[in-house]
């Protein structure tokens, strides 16, 4: 029993670094966005090249970004731990609630980042060329 408690204490302590962590998924959205924008500029404005290749490779990058966000989201969902605790809102001033709250926030941000990546990828599917 004490072992379990200690393990829990350890877990809640470990993640204290995670104010950054809630921003990881949106940061992946931002990097994906910049890569799309820069690559299109280079192909369409600077070097020329086959827009079809550009679109397929950017869509592949979108898939990678989505996979990374999904992984972060899954970890965050586990951290929120709502299935075990049944606590959706984590309003208490204790380490466990803070831990789970940050998981919840990161989980929600992962969802919105995934939506963002999907939205930004849609022009790659719909628009065929540079013009």
């Amino acid at each position: 029993m004490t072992d379990g408690k200690d393990a829990e204490k350890h877990e809640f302590r470990e993640e204290s670094e995670s104010l950054w962590r809630i921003a990881f998924a949106p940061a992946i959205w931002a990097i994906h966005f910049v890569v799309c924008y820069a690559w299109v500029s280079l192909v369409c404005v600077k070097f020329g090249g086959d827009p079809a290749v550009m679109r397929v490779s950017l869509l592949a990058i979108s898939a990678v970004a989505l996979a990374a966000i999904a992984w972060l989201g899954w970890r965050a969902f586990r951290q929120w731990n709502v299935r075990d605790t049944g606590d959706f809102t984590n309003p208490e001033g204790e380490a466990e609630d803070r831990h789970e709250f940050l998981g919840h926030a990161a989980f929600l941000l992962a969802i919105i980042s995934a939506i963002g990546v999907i939205y930004v990828s849609m022009p790659l599917i719909i628009i065929e060329g540079c013009r």
Binding site: V40, I127, G129, C130, R131
Partner: peptide, 17 residues
């Protein structure tokens, strides 16, 4: 390029969420 406009158009719609 239209495809670039598409990115910003999409993000502008996404921010509504």
């Amino acid at each position: 390029p239209n495809i670039s406009l598409g990115f910003f158009s999409a993000a502008s719609e996404a921010v509504v969420i």
